[in-house]
């Protein structure tokens, strides 16, 4: 699906620390670097608390990164000032789809006003008629009816609400969408519907996605490349197939071994691999390109061993 290999987002040595210097200091991201290419979907997986959501929020500047660079189309957005013209322009180019469809829509606003919020902020429509027409267009795009516009969020199901959230993000015509676990709060049947909708929209508009999730099978389905996170670090980054079939880092292996299989015979044989972070993280390790386009967080000795085994 990747047409050209020009990076749209370049993350360099991103560090995010909360409550720095206090007793409750949290080092949420420790030196994270990766690229997201134009038109691709990068899946970001990892266990709860590994820093997936923090990465997403730092990339969209909901958090002010402690240090490091986040280049969006060559511009360092970590240095943009809140309220500046460049910041407003960046807000149009990057959008986010949130995890909880019940919390991500203002319960006191009509669907029409929720979707049109971005249109109003960026002055994309100039008359109420144009606004209504654009909202109807966006609703149709996500498979909802025009007459849903005058209703309130509490009248919709989880899947419908998530589609309203997608319509809101699409309203400002962004290039890059960060989907922060958009399907983890939905029924399995609705998950497929939403993921397919995201895929269709990507094909139609040539969008770039950062897809954050912890469901590996869903991530493999939607992603071109997968990044695996643990303890605020990227431990492995490669194409979806590569991560799935030739995982190198012990954490990735452990994660994959935990996927249940829908076959009672092989499921009975499946042995989850235990993972000990002390033996595979920290120290002199760095994210190294072990094989072409396959990055692993490892020491020099481990890199040599990985290369040997292949």
């Amino acid at each position: 699906m990747i047409t050209d290999k020009t990076p749209l987002v370049q993350v360099r040595h991103l560090v995010q620390t909360f409550n720095a210097g206090k007793k409750d200091e949290v080092r949420a991201l420790q030196d994270v670097s990766f690229d997201i290419y134009k038109g691709e979907t990068l899946g970001l997986v990892g266990e709860s608390g590994s820093g997936k959501t923090t990465t997403g929020r730092a990339l969209i500047r909901l958090y002010q990164p402690t240090s490091g660079e986040v280049l969006f189309a060559g511009q360092d957005i970590a240095k943009l000032k809140n309220g500046s013209a460049q910041m407003l322009a960046f807000r149009r180019q990057t959008q986010m789809i949130f995890q909880d469809p019940y919390a991500s829509l203002n319960p006191r606003m009509k669907v029409k006003d929720i979707i049109a919020e971005g249109l109003d902020i960026h002055h994309l429509v100039h008359s109420p008629q144009e606004r209504d027409a654009r909202v109807a267009e966006l609703l149709a795009e996500v498979g909802l009816n025009e007459d849903h516009a005058s209703r309130y969020p509490h009248e919709f199901s989880g899947g419908q609400r998530q589609r309203i959230g997608i319509a809101r993000a699409l309203a400002v015509e962004p290039q890059f969408i960060i989907a922060d676990e958009p399907i983890s709060a939905l029924d399995v049947s609705i998950q497929a519907q939403v993921v397919n909708l995201l895929k269709d929209i990507q094909d139609k508009k040539g969008l770039t996605y950062l897809f954050i999730a912890h469901d590996l099978s869903m991530v493999k389905y939607i992603s071109d490349r997968i990044a695996v996170m643990h303890n605020g670090r990227l431990v492995e980054l490669a194409s979806a197939a590569e991560v799935y079939h030739h995982p190198l880092h012990p954490y990735t292996k452990s994660l994959l071994s935990a996927i249940p299989e829908p076959d009672p015979d092989s499921e009975r044989q499946r042995v989850p691999i235990a993972y000990d972070a002390r033996q595979a993280e920290g120290g002199q390790r760095q994210l190294v390109e072990v094989l072409p386009a396959h990055y692993v967080y490892a020491t020099a000795a481990e890199v040599a061993a990985y290369r040997q085994s292949n």
Binding site: L62, F98, D100, A103, S104, N106, E117, I121, V172
Partner: peptide, 24 residues
């Protein structure tokens, strides 16, 4: 999340207070 969504859309703090906080 709806307040975060308003932030990512570029809404100013004053507008967020007016449109999202006060009604709620």
């Amino acid at each position: 999340e709806f307040v975060l969504a308003a932030k990512t859309l570029g809404e100013s703090s004053f507008q967020i207070a007016l449109k999202h906080l006060v009604p709620n």
